[in-house]
Design a protein around this nucleic acid. Structure first.
Length: 216
DNA sequence: GAGGAGATCGTCT
DNA sequence: GACGATCTCCTCT
């Protein structure tokens, strides 16, 4: 319908190091926009991060960590740069990365991705039939939304909870390819009932793959 | 195009 | 036993 869906960064993929995540989730969230989430499967799948939310630990009523350190969310309270995957609404998995030094329970939720490599394989994992050429509306069905992107990359709690996202040895990792978003917009978080007003959702302005009815 | 409700199950009370 | 950091389908306009 409008702008080209796939943009590729100028550099080869380089893993983000642990110190990147040892900061506040607000900063990590902003800087994760434009980075690449890589799944090493039969083939390599990769998609650009276009929408995230920051969750501020035990003092954030909307955060899972507000309940304290439990068996479910313990990865959040561990060292930074690890995957916290949880199951929600009986249907969906959602992916977070732990932030801050050990003990804080803070993290960033991944909400939407723009397919970059192996788009066809991701569509297949979602049960989406992609015609050629596919429209933006069809491509959006692959990974615009936390549950959708997890299904597209085959992310489950059993398989991925606790994975180190800072090394390309991992089957799931985060990379920088040199791409930098032009403009970032902060809005209130989605799907929560507490602390609704705080502007902790961050999106790449104008990106068609941001979740919701319209991109900003 | 908008709005509402069902699906479905792990986790915590 | 209730509910949730969601998605899809269905109905109504």
């Amino acid at each position: 319908m409008k702008k080209p869906p796939l943009e590729t960064g100028p550099l080869p993929l380089r893993p983000l190091d642990r110190s990147f995540f040892a900061r506040t989730p607000r900063r990590v969230a902003r800087e994760l926009l434009g980075k690449i989430l890589v799944r090493e499967d039969k083939t390599r799948l990769a998609a650009r991060i276009v929408e995230v939310e920051a969750y501020l630990g035990i003092d954030d009523p909307a955060a899972h960590a507000a309940a304290g350190n439990t068996a479910r969310n313990s990865v959040l309270f561990g060292p930074p740069g690890f995957a916290y995957v949880y199951f929600i609404y009986g249907n969906h998995y959602c992916l977070n990365v732990s932030c801050m030094p050990e003990g804080y329970g803070e993290g960033v939720l991944f909400r939407a991705l723009e397919p970059v490599y192996a788009t066809e394989a991701m569509a297949q994992a979602r049960g989406v039939d992609l015609p050629t050429p596919a429209t933006i509306a069809q491509l959006r069905m692959i990974s615009s939304g936390p549950g959708r992107m997890s299904e597209a990359l085959g992310i489950t709690r059993l398989r991925d909870n606790g994975k180190d996202l800072t090394t390309s040895e991992s089957a799931l990792w985060l990379a920088d390819d040199g791409f930098r978003p032009e403009k970032i917009v902060a809005t209130s978080r989605i799907g929560i009932t507490k602390a609704v007003e705080r502007p902790l959702r961050f999106v790449i302005a104008g990106n068609a793959f941001v979740s919701g009815k319209r991109s900003l």
